[in-house]
């Protein structure tokens, strides 16, 4: 088992190490667009190292739930990430329906982060928590439709694990768009939008603004400091890697015989996603909050269209 799983575990190690690079790349791209020099690409590493050394200010209103938020949000991404086929290699944990487990495990982390925000008793953080809960609920159907479309592409009872992420995001479904299945190209669009929602990027949320009335994720973690904040930042970077890996799993076909070339191409695709996020943030404005529901509805409709086109064979 070990020799075949080696490239997968290397990809996992790469994800753990390189995930904080993604926000750095996004920031650098945004700085270039604005004609600035920008922060170092490794800025998040420095921030994490600094935060881990620091102490924390903990609100007197809070309980253990406040501390559980960051810990669970990091732990759940740790658990969800190896369920994905990383670097284009099937996960050793793959089983029928692992996409459900991955989605619900991420939901667990989100649930406790929302509770941690409510634990402070701050109106700002309540605002962020409420928005996060609502938009996550609306994003869920679109995400499931994407998974089902990919499952529908490779649908065959005789393929073991046809309802597993490892089959959906490697092998035949990834190749299908090269072979006259253009509807698959709708999925990267939907998944990209979901990436923006789940990772709180423009045009859904603005990770930079300090105007609480418009923020979602950033406002939820206002009271976290020190190691807690480091956990949250690192978990957010890993979650960005998770969704970028989903995108890379669709657009990069598994046609390379050398596993290391496959890994390199996949990683390059993930970096390209980060660049794309940076470009999107530079050329778009935040949409008004009531529009987000419409945006998510649109994403769901697109995914449903892709599913129907896939089923009409």
């Amino acid at each position: 088992m070990m020799p075949t799983a080696l490239p997968f575990w290397c990809s996992f190690a790469l994800a753990l190490c390189a995930a904080p690079l993604l926000p750095g790349i996004i920031n650098r791209v945004k700085a270039k667009f604005a004609g600035r020099q920008g922060k170092p690409v490794l800025q998040l590493y420095y921030d994490l190292a600094k935060l881990l050394r620091k102490g924390a200010v903990i609100s007197t209103s809070t309980t253990w739930v406040f501390a559980a938020g960051p810990v669970l949000s990091l732990a759940t991404v740790f658990v969800a990430l190896p369920l994905l086929p990383l670097g284009g290699f099937a996960s050793p944990f793959a089983f029928q329906g692992d996409f459900l487990l991955a989605a619900y495990v991420l939901g667990l982390g989100r649930f406790f982060l929302i509770l941690a925000a409510l634990d402070t008793g701050s109106a700002f953080e309540g605002m962020g928590a409420s928005r996060e809960a609502a938009y996550a609920a609306l994003a869920e159907p679109a995400l499931f439709l994407c998974f089902l479309t990919l499952a529908g592409l490779g649908a065959d009872e005789h393929i073991a694990l046809h309802l597993s992420l490892s089959t959906m995001f490697t092998g035949t479904p990834s190749l299908a768009w090269l072979e006259a299945r253009p509807e698959v190209l709708l999925l990267p669009l939907v998944l990209f939008l979901l990436l923006l929602v789940e990772n709180c990027r423009i045009p859904i949320d603005d990770p930079n603004t300090h105007l609480e009335l418009t923020m979602i994720h950033e406002v939820m973690v206002l009271d976290h400091s020190g190691p807690d904040l480091a956990f949250i930042h690192y978990a957010a970077a890993l979650k960005l890697w998770f969704f970028s890996a989903l995108l890379a799993g669709i657009v990069v076909p598994a046609i390379f015989s050398n596993p290391w070339v496959q890994l390199a191409v996949n990683s390059a695709a993930i970096a390209a996603v980060a660049v794309l996020v940076g470009v999107t943030e530079s050329i778009m404005a935040r949409v008004r909050l009531p529009r987000i529901a419409q945006l998510l509805g649109g994403a769901g409709a697109l995914a449903a269209l892709a599913l129907m086109l896939t089923l009409i064979r």
């Binding site: 050394r53 200010v57 007197t60 209103s61 402070t120 701050s122 020190g226």
Partner: peptide, 11 residues
Amino acid sequence: AYSQKNSTWGC
């Protein structure tokens, strides 16, 4: 590290 208890940040 040096940690402390304080009231929730209220802007």
